[in-house]
């Protein structure tokens, strides 16, 4: 009997193609926007020569606007893609994404608190800091709720409880907001955007994302072992409790840092692992690097769309990723069903 589909194996061109995509979206993100910069102007501005003297406009656009925006797009996308891949593997659930554990919602609540009480006006770093703190509080609550149980279901249920609580807090802030402008500000932050970010934002998010990603990438094989269930993984020497602690902290710190500068951006963590999985051998560890790269490419690409689509009010990144995410996800769902 012949297998209905070819044996899944890692496509040799997957990572090189994603790297190429990464270079292309980075260059496009430097060049495209309300003011298009040609390659010569970018090179001249980057290295400070040519173009008949200082091209101040190009330098300002590039360094003050597009560079931080691009770097944030790449790292937030990478973090969301990676944590989606890790959580799908860890929870053995193809619908898992960073928000299932409540970390993204709680981080968003932290930011909303900063906006609501005007704490964000003290200093531009207050909002991200509060957001990261709330992400950590959420993970603490998650551990308390999930207790000693190691089943993914209890963790998902605890995550839903934390996430719902944070969501209720956000709704409360919107409900009680003193004036429509405050509500608008909160709403527009919740839609997710990486517009008008400065290099300060990069320095806030970068350490969190580096630490979070390092925690998530530390033992990829534990995720593979979990394909055999908890007992199977344990019998292969995986310390389930330690693995859980490491992954939850990684998600809280990394996604907390990402949400702190970008707002809540959905769907990236959900769809990127699905996009790359058919080109791997389907084992969770094989998804991590491609999902990181794919997330960076997807988010930065979506951000370029935000800049190019003409609209009166500014289009938010989270809205674009949601619109991009739905068809991609439906397509995969249909393909999956036809295979059965």
């Amino acid at each position: 009997m012949q297998s209905p589909n070819p044996a899944p194996s890692r496509h040799p061109a997957l990572v090189p193609l994603l790297l190429l995509g990464l270079v292309l979206v980075t260059l496009a993100s430097f060049g495209l926007g309300p003011v298009a910069l040609g390659p010569e102007r970018i090179v001249a501005a980057l290295f400070g020569y040519g173009g008949g003297g200082e091209d101040r406009v190009a330098r300002a656009i590039l360094f003050d606007l597009r560079l931080p925006r691009t770097v944030i797009g790449l790292m937030v996308g990478a973090m969301l893609g990676l944590s989606g891949a890790v959580l799908q593997g860890y929870l053995r659930n193809p619908l898992a994404e960073p928000s299932v554990l409540g970390a993204s919602n709680a981080s968003a609540l932290g930011a909303v608190i900063a906006l609501y009480f005007g704490i964000s006006e003290w200093s531009p770093v207050m909002l991200p800091i509060l957001s990261i703190l709330m992400g950590l509080v959420a993970i603490g609550l998650l551990f308390a709720l999930a207790g000693r149980s190691e089943s993914p279901l209890s963790l998902i249920l605890a995550g839903i409880a934390v996430s719902t609580l944070a969501g209720a807090g956000i709704s409360l802030a919107l409900n009680l907001s003193p004036n429509p402008f405050a509500a608008m500000e909160i709403m527009s932050w919740l839609l997710g955007s990486i517009e008008n970010r400065t290099i300060d934002h990069v320095w806030i998010a970068l350490p969190c994302i580096v630490v979070g990603a390092a925690l998530l990438l530390a033992h990829p094989r534990a995720l593979d072992a979990l394909s055999l269930g908890e007992d199977g993984a344990r019998s292969l020497g995986v310390d389930l409790r330690r693995t859980r602690r490491r992954l939850m902290l990684g998600v809280a710190i990394g996604v907390g840092g990402a949400v702190a500068v970008s707002g809540a951006i959905g769907f990236v963590g959900l769809i990127v692992p699905h996009l790359v999985r058919p080109m791997t051998d389907r084992s969770p560890s094989a998804l991590l690097l491609p999902s990181m790269l794919g997330g960076a490419v997807l988010l930065t690409g979506a951000d370029i769309l935000v800049r190019l689509i003409p609209s009166d009010a500014e289009l938010k990144l989270g809205v674009v990723t949601a619109f991009l995410g739905v068809p991609v996800f439906l397509f995969h769902l249909l393909r999956e069903r036809r295979l059965w």
Partner: peptide
Amino acid sequence: YLPQGQTLHWPLTVERLVALGRLP
């Protein structure tokens, strides 16, 4: 240890599945 119930959460090939035994 071979647990009861043949749990396998991802569509791995047999060879990839057997190779999981080398993880320790």
